[in-house]
Simulated assay, not measured.
Amino acid sequence: MISSLLYVPGNAPRFLEKAGQRGADVVIVDLEDAVPEAAKTEARDGLEKWVPEIKRGGCQVFVRVNQSDRLVEDAIAATLAGADALYIPKVEGPDILAGLDKTLTAHEGNRAPISFVPLIEDMKGLFEVRAIAQGPRVIALTAGGEDLATAMGARPTPEVLRYPKLMIHYAAKEAGVLSFGMLRTTVDFADKDALRAAAMEARDFGFDGASCIHPSVVPILNECFAPSPEEVEWARKVLAANDENAAAGRGAFMLEGKFIDAPIVTRARNLLARFEKGRATL
């Protein structure tokens, strides 16, 4: 269960040293956009120190690598440092994932294979997203909202981003992998009410979690993407009533004035599974 992913610049020790204490499920150490070119090599070299230090806080650590001639070296450094996954920007097709898969196998030794989270950030990637979602090691998909808008020559408004982000989300759900994001850009973190509304909307659509660039947003994401106590209680009632009615030969029934049938029972079962999985990670 991953509700919150916090980006931290890979060249900012004052942020990195506290990153594992922010309450995020995942800290994304960013080697790409947040790091100027002159500092990228130093940031990569710092993974050996920062990845295990952040993981001691109890969260997972992903590394956003550079999609350039730095890609392979960034990916190997993240793997050797013990990162759980790579955030791979500007993925345009599954071939890049297949190549990284083969390259990293030789560097993994006894560690579990590092996972991939492709970022879809241009039109080519958007129209190849179903194939990308089926690529090796993929555990989740997400969109780069600002880059997508730029690729379209558009402004990153919720209206502009809604359809492409839903395309990426649907591809993730078809492939059975996680889907991260909200139906808006995540750059503006000052308006907490708007962020909360966007997170709740994303959860209603079935997104699993979202990323942020400021630690003040982490509690909002954790709250919005996790099942509420009322939802958990209702799901338990649904499953208990379903067991009773199934024993009586009924596949559909009324519960507290609401009609319940198979899709609602499945949704309740999935919600409880997500809740129990979240508790198991605490």
Rank of each mutant, 00 (worst) to 15 (best):
Ala77Gly: 06
Ile114Gly: 00
Gly109Cys: 05
Phe116Leu: 01
His107Thr: 02
Ile96Glu: 05
Pro118Tyr: 01
Glu108His: 06
Leu97Cys: 02
Pro94Ile: 02
Val91Ser: 04
Arg70Ser: 04
Ala75Gln: 11
Asp84Ser: 09
Cys59Trp: 14
Gln67Asn: 15
Ile88Phe: 05
Asn66Ala: 07
Gly93Asp: 10
Ala78Leu: 02
Leu104Ser: 11
Ala78Gln: 04
Arg111Met: 11
Ala75Met: 12
Asp74Gln: 11
Ala85Ser: 13
Val61Asn: 09
Ser68Lys: 12
Ala81His: 01
Ala106Val: 07
Ala75Pro: 04
Asp95Ile: 04
Gly109Val: 08
Ala78Asn: 06
Ala106Cys: 00
Tyr87His: 01
Ala112Lys: 14
Ser68Glu: 14
Val65Asp: 10
Asp95Ser: 03
Lys102Asn: 00
Ala77Asp: 05
Leu100Gly: 08
Ala78Lys: 08
Gln67Tyr: 14
Ile76Ala: 11
Thr79Trp: 03
Glu92Thr: 14
Arg56Leu: 13
Ile96Gly: 00
Asn110Tyr: 15
Ala85Gln: 06
Arg64Asp: 07
Leu104Met: 04
Pro94Ser: 05
Ala81Asn: 11
Val61His: 10
Tyr87Ile: 15
Glu92Cys: 08
Ala98Arg: 15
Ile114Lys: 10
Glu92Tyr: 12
Ile88Thr: 02
Ile88Tyr: 09
Pro89His: 11
Ala81Thr: 01
Gly99Leu: 03
Lys90Gln: 13
Asp69Leu: 14
Ser68Pro: 12
Leu80Cys: 02
Ala81Glu: 03
Thr105His: 10
Val91Leu: 10
Pro94His: 00
Glu108Cys: 08
Ala77Val: 05
Leu97Ala: 04
Asp101Pro: 02
Leu80Pro: 00
Arg70Gly: 06
Val72Cys: 00
Ala81Ile: 11
Leu104Gln: 12
Leu100Thr: 07
Leu97Arg: 07
Val117Cys: 11
Gly93Gln: 02
Gly99Asn: 13
Ser68Ala: 15
Leu80Trp: 02
Ala106Gly: 06
Tyr87Pro: 01
Gly82Val: 13
Thr105Lys: 09
Ser115Gln: 14
Ala83Asp: 12
Arg70Leu: 14
